[in-house]
Write a protein that binds this DNA or RNA. Sequence first.
DNA 1: GCGACAG
DNA 2: ATCTTGTCGC
Length: 243
Amino acid sequence: MNQPDVEWPREQGRLKNVLRLSNDVTLAQLKYVGGVDLSFPLNDSDHAVACVVVLEFPSLKLIHASYKWVTLTLPYIPGYLAFREVGPLVELLNDLKATQPDIYPQVILVDGNGILHPRQFGLACHLGVLSDTPCIGVAKNFLHIPEEGSAMEMVEVKARCKKALQKRGDTVDLIGASGVVYGVALRSSDDAKNPVFVSQGHGVDLPTAVEIVLACSKFKNAEPIRQADGLSRKYIRDHNLSR
DNA sequence: GCGACAG
DNA sequence: ATCTTGTCGC
């Protein structure tokens, strides 16, 4: 009974029962924002460097970065990213909470989706529940969601974005034919024509999630994620981890 | 069967 | 995911 397409949706459904989409964090009380990401060496998809950073808010100054060199056992399958990447991230967060609880972030920006997902339970939800920490999904690319109507089709979303996202802060709601509010496409920078896709992960409502992502954005990618991405990549270079 | 699919 | 970084389409 080791069938991913049977066991994994089941597991997502179970964890979804303890998912909180109500708000546990506000901009006013925000002091530390986290960012997580994994980077891979060239020609080696079985190993990666997981990274968690903490930025002071609203200055967005880097105050912490920790890394973990990991061996990945599961493949990347769209809709099941969390099963491949969530383990190392939870470990890094647990270490941080245990050793430096004073700088543990009130909210974490995750490279990937929250409920903007075929079963409304993407990586940001998965990480939020397992770490019991508010999380926001921020994806650079749109994840295709089957059978949710023309309003959620790739070409349709792109067309609406091109028309409506004229300046930094503009948003386009992503609502399925079923009525589910998946998230929003957000223009995070005046220089970035293409949007990022923001969705609730855990412990945050959508308006607050968008507010936080925007407040953390200097470029297209929100600073916490951009830092985690850049630093984990640098870690691979500095330690000669590419084959 | 092919297509469409976060990282 | 991977490429130097910021962004994107020819």
